[in-house]
């Protein structure tokens, strides 16, 4: 078959337009989110009096908002990494806002809380539950994202997988943040980050194989 023949076949196939990548990712992410929220409702549930507690303690909405910001930025990064030749500098810099804000929160907490309480605030009430819950809540969105990204064309499959893990981990962490009674930025820095890092590492390992094209 000559190249002109191949082009002929490709053109005929192009008569059926492909779904844009963003739409494919959303279409997979949606059921993944439904499963994650189902697990959340069945196993964890919303923290009692979240709104009134949040009105008194800014740490609560700082924690939830920070994870929400990470969800948005990691989502954008994931899509960028799935597109060949996409510009990455802007989004990578924007992503740095998240650790910067967390450091700021830690700084404020160091000032606000007496040194004797630092250790207790970092260990929190149930660190192991946090470590288990974030990956558990992240799992369904994680699988959905990896399947959707097979439709992408990442120049660096491991990196794209890692971004998907970060994205899913942030989703798990944001859900968990609305349940978790530990609000200190110390706790977030110590335990949330481990949970998210587990998902990121898993994404890199799986992505390196699954997302090759």
């Amino acid at each position: 078959m000559k190249t002109e023949n191949l082009i002929q076949a490709l053109a005929v196939d192009a008569g059926t337009p492909p779904a844009p990548l963003g739409r494919t990712v959303s279409a997979w992410l949606l059921p993944g989110m439904v499963v994650a929220i189902g697990i959340y409702v069945a196993g964890l549930g919303l923290r009692p009096h979240l709104l009134s507690l949040g009105a008194d303690d800014p740490r609560i909405f700082f924690k939830i908002g920070l994870m929400g910001l990470l969800v948005c930025l990691a989502g954008l990064l994931t899509l960028r990494l799935a597109r060949p030749g996409a510009e990455l500098r802007g989004i990578s810099l924007a992503l740095m806002i998240v650790p910067a804000l967390l450091l700021l929160g830690i700084g404020l907490e160091l000032v606000a809380v007496p040194q004797a309480d630092w250790g207790r605030r970092m260990i929190g009430h149930n660190a192991m539950f946090c470590l288990r819950s974030i990956p558990l809540l992240a799992l369904a969105p994680f699988c959905a994202l990896l399947v959707a990204l097979r439709d992408g064309a990442p120049s660096h499959p491991a990196l794209a997988g890692a971004a998907a893990g970060l994205f899913a981990g942030a989703i798990g962490a944001m859900l968990y943040a609305t349940h978790c009674p530990d609000d200190s930025p110390f706790f977030v820095a110590a335990w949330y980050s481990i949970g998210i890092a587990i998902m990121t590492a898993a994404g890199a390992l799986i992505g390196a194989r699954l997302l090759r094209w």
């Binding site: 490709l10 192009a14 844009p20 990548l21 597109r83 060949p84 439709d151």
Partner: peptide, 8 residues
């Protein structure tokens, strides 16, 4: 062709 949906 197969990755044309990844062009923004």
């Amino acid at each position: 062709h197969l990755k044309r949906q990844t062009w923004d």
